[in-house]
Computed example of a mutant assay.
Amino acid sequence: MKLPFLFGALLAASSALADLKPVWQIDGFKMPESVVYDEQRSQYYVSNINQGPLAVDNNGSIGPIDSNGKAHTLEWVSGLSSPKGLALKGDYLYAADTKELVVINVEEGKITARFPAPEAVVLNGLAFDKKGTLYVSDWAGNKIYKLEDNELKVWLSGKELESPNGLVVKGNHLYVASWGLNPGADFTTDTSGLLKKISLKTGKIENLREKGNDAWMNLDGLHPIDGGWLATDFMKGELLTLDDKGSIKSSEKLAPSAADFFLVEGQDLIVVPYLMANKVVAYKYEK
């Protein structure tokens, strides 16, 4: 797959000054899409897409950063294709890798399992529920998968998912950061994205704001905070604070291609991968 023409413009704009205060920055990643923090081992894991975001090309990787942002390894675990969303559970790191879910033993630094989803278009966001069940979004395929009995199965599908990206399980619901309907080659959409709430029991989908009643957004990363949510708008390069109804309370400027961030709440730190700028930046998050 050739890179969309928009990527050049995103890269050119990625030097824009951020309103948030940078704490550290590491350059040299290969299209980093997602970051997750491993508190037990005091390090971050970063997914490197490396070229085509939808490609099954075996050139993607996972690279760690130490907790101080002073050292990193680009290709700690290779053999992936275009890994995006990450989730950590115990000694295992899960990566959404286009048409499969990849499991990595972080103590050994080795891939231990692969769960195929051949009909998926591009697996993206990950979230565990309290029982340990893993949910996986298919961004361009308008599906949500569930890892069950060692098999990745479609749990929910339909255009009403509107390009599901970031996922969070909270209580008895799965919350979805949607990108918007019908993303094109340049990632623009026919409709604005929005926050969705899905019952884990019934699969009922609820939009948390009425369309047209808020600013346009293309949501990527998602994290719960008191009274609402933090989300990244990939296209505009903004960190959005949403209320519990999914409407924008405030926004702070990052830069275009800000993807699936991680909030380290104990340190008040937001770590943001910039897909097209090939860098990861940590910012001080002032509530």
Rank of each mutant, 00 (worst) to 15 (best):
A16D: 08
T189H: 04
D268T: 06
I104E: 03
L174I: 13
G8T: 11
D66T: 00
K30T: 08
Y175Q: 12
G8S: 12
N150P: 07
V272W: 07
K143V: 05
L147R: 08
V36E: 02
T241E: 08
D268G: 10
K30P: 06
A140C: 15
W24A: 00
K146H: 11
Q51D: 15
K99V: 01
I49P: 05
A185G: 14
T191R: 08
Q43M: 11
V102T: 13
V35N: 00
L54W: 13
N124W: 07
G8V: 13
K143E: 12
A87M: 09
S251W: 06
N105M: 04
A259M: 07
G184V: 09
N278H: 09
Y285C: 08
K284Q: 13
T133F: 15
L161T: 09
G109W: 05
E75S: 15
Y135Q: 10
N59W: 14
G109D: 06
N124C: 12
N48L: 10
L230P: 06
S78G: 12
A12E: 07
E39P: 03
V106N: 01
I270C: 01
T98R: 05
I270G: 01
A16I: 10
G227I: 07
A13I: 09
Y94R: 13
L6N: 02
E162N: 09
G171T: 14
A96Q: 12
L134H: 13
A120H: 08
Y37Q: 04
N278G: 02
K84Q: 10
K201T: 15
N182V: 15
L80Y: 12
E162I: 12
T73A: 05
R114L: 04
L11V: 08
V23N: 00
S82K: 06
K146I: 14
E162P: 02
L239H: 01
A259H: 08
E210M: 12
D268C: 07
N68A: 01
L208C: 10
E39H: 01
G60K: 13
T202F: 14
K249R: 11
D97M: 10
F7I: 03
A277Q: 03
G141H: 13
G85E: 09
D57M: 00
V272L: 08
E148H: 15
S14P: 05
S178K: 05
S34W: 08
D268R: 05
Y94Q: 11
L123T: 08
L152N: 04
G193M: 03
W155P: 06
K131V: 14
P116N: 07
K170H: 15
L17K: 15
D190V: 13
L123S: 05
G69S: 02
L194I: 11
L80A: 03
A177F: 05
T112Q: 02
A71G: 10
D91W: 03
F29R: 06
S199T: 15
V121K: 14
Q25R: 00
S199W: 14
A95C: 14
L17M: 14
A12G: 10
L147D: 13
Q40H: 09
Y274S: 05
